[in-house]
Design a protein around this nucleic acid. Sequence first.
DNA 1: CTGTTAGCGCATTCAG
DNA 2: CTGAATGCGCTAACAG
Lengths: 335, 335
Amino acid sequence: MKVTIQEIAEKANVSPSTVSRALRGTAGVSAKKYQAVMDAVTDLDYRPNIFAQSLASGQSMTIGVLTQNFGSPFYDGILRGILEGLEESNYWPLFVDGRWQIIIEQRALNMLIDRRVDGIIIVGGQVPEEMLHELAMQKPLIVVARKLKTLPERSVYVDNFEAAYHATRYLLERGHRDIAHVTADMNNTTAIDDILDRYNGYKRALTDAGIEPDPRLVVEGNLQQQSGVLAVEMLLGRGRAFSAIFAANDQMAFGARLALYRHGIRVPDDVSLVGFDDEASAAYMIPPLTTVRQPAVEMGQAAAKAILDLLTGNSPTVELFDAELIIRESVMRFR
Amino acid sequence: MKVTIQEIAEKANVSPSTVSRALRGTAGVSAKKYQAVMDAVTDLDYRPNIFAQSLASGQSMTIGVLTQNFGSPFYDGILRGILEGLEESNYWPLFVDGRWQIIIEQRALNMLIDRRVDGIIIVGGQVPEEMLHELAMQKPLIVVARKLKTLPERSVYVDNFEAAYHATRYLLERGHRDIAHVTADMNNTTAIDDILDRYNGYKRALTDAGIEPDPRLVVEGNLQQQSGVLAVEMLLGRGRAFSAIFAANDQMAFGARLALYRHGIRVPDDVSLVGFDDEASAAYMIPPLTTVRQPAVEMGQAAAKAILDLLTGNSPTVELFDAELIIRESVMRFR
DNA sequence: CTGTTAGCGCATTCAG
DNA sequence: CTGAATGCGCTAACAG
């Protein structure tokens, strides 16, 4: 159960250091001894003690990954990408969940630091940018699915403005003029930059089409499904007619869909609906939801690659990813 | 950045051992020295080196958690429960993702063992029961959301048979006689016990109601959404009439819903639909899906509590959880 | 290429 | 209650 490097050294008739060298290939070892070591290792089922390794080497060979919600399909794609991107390396990801609560996030970050991770990947989240900036001075750090204004070369994300612009324009091209937008409460401090970008993309598309954005067509939710229901209720309450809704995320689009259903408003016959994120169930909404897909897996891979670059001293190569409009049946040409 | 116990010992004018004792409270320390130590700790922002701690103590103070899919709402609930259950303790969870692939699961398990976790919680998965049995001999181990026949006192789960029985009976009570069932391919080896239990619960409910189960009303999917679409296609292709569908999980129910929609079959007017798992989007399906909720968070908490019991030498207290039928608009009384 | 010698930072005996 | 001494298992200089 607890066989040490010492024992396999004895069994292989070499010194402990030679075993260490053979195992991690930090220096040449004669073929004969190498073989002897390997035999002993398999014979005794030797497992190096990670703590001793880390203590002696000063490296933990782990990458801390702070995510916000293990249950989110979008983030899950990113995590999968990170997993894949780290596969070939000798680093292992340490996942912690911030649950979108800034207190928990900070505690989780501290935990990662206490665990001496060699690098940190932050997926979304609300940790203030200054704090991340400071952290980046101490450790290799990459942020995914969130744009850092002061650290652009450390963030992997898509251009949300552009994506929202396209989504809105798609509706415009289909003849819609009165397009409502469900955004999120911007007072929820930071990290809502993405949502703000989407809002701005929406507005710009309108003005570019010669339409004056109407504040009565904009409602705020909190990114949860239930808030999408409320958003539509508010919208209907205002009495301002609209033929389409562009929601800043799919969750709220689902809620909106339900509210419309409850009011007997048909989708897409009466109102067209567009979401954002392409969550798994978007394709199974009735009718299937038109939405914007961010290349989650690819972004995760890019983040892993970037952190590995940082770790090996190379300058990381982060690219701006493009989002893709996924056209489904929830949009109909305005008659 | 790297302040050691030695330095704070000097600053506090005590020996390193006293610092250690003060910090972890393994033995009494005079109030005066205790205070001096604590002051030094905060002054120098001391962070104990976890590797040195673990190396010296032989404990890692971590619990390995093997899950199958970070993106699943149901599993996410369990993870949240585990997180909460471990909160008060000094243990920290180490999450690994098996991705429902037995090879990856085993590698992940090995990784946990290499990392010297003090205990293991397994969430679902397909690792063969014998292997788990063997593992349980070596380390504290708890399995959630999966029934181990040979280790019942180590598994936290709900009675799927019972739950499926109730769900089916609900349909029967609403006047349905021709109830189809979407199950999963049982050849996919292990861990499908739950699905099998659901299938058996369905059959038993029928026979108890004096109805002979009709194989033509049973189709197999693979638990993914897309397979629900195919399942309904097959069902329709068989030409055997039915007025309700009970799917073994929500994912397939979503797919089934979409297939019905494509065929112009209304839910619940023409066909009633029942799922299983109460995934987040079930409440936002059109119409909202009647389904079965397993108390995920509670199960996670119970698992955490049980592993903590195991760790402290107590015999774990695992209970059988009850599932709850969540009644929504997707079921209509058969006319 | 290889064995020997020192620690890595902390917990834990063992003597006081 | 406290300090000194020892070792956890491994890596990394250091000399050959």
